[in-house]
Nucleic acid binder design. Structure first.
Lengths: 189, 189
DNA sequence: ATACCCATGTAAAAAGTTACATGATTAG
DNA sequence: CTAATCATGTAACTTTTTACATGGGTAT
């Protein structure tokens, strides 16, 4: 198969929402999509070139504002290609979690250091939960758009999974609090 | 900075559990660590070479079974290097979720296709939840090891997060069931 | 004018996967 | 004897990030 690359589809996906420049696309990734997807310029511009080469989008010019900006518009072929991808099976995600990695290898002597990492994680999660809630409120303005239920589902997942992880951090801190003092064996110092 | 590479630390981490060959390390990644970390041979063997070059592990030979196998043992310098890493701040994880990506770009006409993806996800999650529960039972055999609480925490996270995602799939399917019929506008066919 | 964002793009490096070549050992 | 598994390693490729070069537009 030629290209399974998700980058191409992610970029094409943004174009389904309307004509965009590379810069606009980047903004989408670092704003509404940042919680579950991102792409850097180094991926976006080459992907746009490829998408145009395959006839899934075309450059459009708006004579009004003759900026340096290039906008791309998805073609019918592009829309169809995207729909097909959307219905295709998802690849198993390969998840890499640095915090879990540290926990897995930790020993009693690492408990205080781990606790500090968990506390940091807690404050980060608390912030993102607040952000999700605010975004949910903002999203209500689009309540009557046909895409509303889908956008709302992605936000909902962000919220649920962050709350679960926060809860887990709390459990972990309780557990860690019971470890450090009883174990001081195997010290060489 | 020379190397922030997590691969080096992940491999070193496995070595903290005891002398291992590259093959053994691979097995660790595809067994106990698979839910939050993985490395391929193409990463592991070069990483081992690098680790030895930096003096964090050394090749050991067991004259008994003169196999083709090379085992590596972590050095004191390696243990210290690893502890330092363990206490260092975690990098923000860049999470990419193909299912969320599809949901975000979906429109009412895609509802049936999405529902199929969610159902697939449900069965996968149900399986991993069962696997987590079985692993929890097996882990009880190591209840008195000093690393038990940490291993148990990583399993616990796997279980909680899978259950949350499963719950979200159920909500999504209910929501999707209410979409498809009311929306048939904008069809060109 | 000068600073700051908008905007496009690329080169180089780093990270990671895949597929293969090679051969030893073990179980049936 | 044969198949499966153990075991090491690498080359080629894909993917992704990072850092830079370049310059237009706009507000102070």
């Amino acid at each position: 198969m030629a290209k399974t690359s998700n980058t191409l589809f992610a970029v094409l996906g943004v174009l389904t929402k309307g004509p965009c420049s590379g810069y606009d696309i980047r903004k989408h990734f670092s704003e509404s999509l940042r919680h579950f997807w991102s792409e850097s310029y180094g991926q976006i511009y080459p992907a746009l070139k490829e998408i145009v080469a395959q006839g899934y989008a075309a450059e459009v010019s708006y004579p009004n504002h003759s900026r340096k900006q290039k906008k791309y518009e998805i073609t019918n072929a592009g829309l169809e290609h995207f729909s097909t991808w959307l219905a295709s099976p998802v690849n198993p995600l390969n998840y890499r979690d640095e915090l879990l990695l540290r926990v897995f290898f930790a020993r009693p002597k690492d408990a205080p250091a781990l606790a500090a990492l968990f506390e940091r994680e807690q404050t980060d999660l608390t912030q993102s939960i607040a952000a999700y809630k605010q975004q949910e409120a903002e999203l209500l303005l689009h309540k009557h758009q046909e895409q509303y239920p889908f956008w709302s589902l992605t936000l909902r997942y962000g919220l649920l999974s962050s709350e679960t992880r926060l809860q887990w951090c709390r459990e972990a801190l309780l557990l860690l609090a019971r470890i450090p003092d009883e174990d001081r064996k195997g010290e060489t110092k």
